[in-house]
Amino acid sequence: MSKKIRILIAKPGLDGHDRGAKYVARALKDAGYEVIYTGIRQTPEAIVKTAIQEDVDFIGLSLLSGAHNELFPKVVELLRSRNAGDIIVLGGGVIPEADIPGLKEKGIQAVFTPGTPIRDIIAFIESVKR
C-alpha cells in the first residue's frame, strides 16, 4: 500500500462562508485524498495543533473576510516554531492579487483565488507532495 496524502482544510478567523472550503474538501476526497475538515472559526493555534496530530502533508486555509494577511502567515509561523515547517500551506478565498506575493514570501506556497478549477489545485498537490 502506498502512502496516502492527508490534507487539512481549515477556516481561520471568524468568517463563516464555508461553501468554497466544503467544495474543495469534497472534491479532494473524490480525487482520492484523505481530507480532515474542522469547520469554521478556527484559531491559527488550533489549526497547527490539528495539522500536527493528524500528520497532514498539506493545510488548505480558506478565508473571505480579508484577514488573510494576518492569519495565513501566523499559521506558517506557528508550524515552523513547532518544528513542522515541512507541512505545506495553501491559501484560498477572496485574496486580492496584490496580496499574493507578500503571502508567498511569508511561506504560503500557493494561493488559489475564486474560479480556480479543482484540477489546478490537484496538479499543485501532486507536483509538490513529499
Binding site: 473524490d30 482520492g32 485524498y33 484523505e34 481530507v35 474542522t38
Partner: peptide, 22 residues
C-alpha cells in the same frame, strides 16, 4: 469510511471535538 471509489475520505468527526484542539 474511505470512499470505495476514489479511496479518499472526509474525516470530520473531530469537528465536534475541536474545542479540545488546543
Amino acid at each position: 469510511p474511505s470512499s470505495p471509489f476514489s479511496g479518499g475520505a472526509i474525516l470530520g468527526d473531530r469537528l465536534r471535538m475541536q474545542k479540545h484542539a488546543t
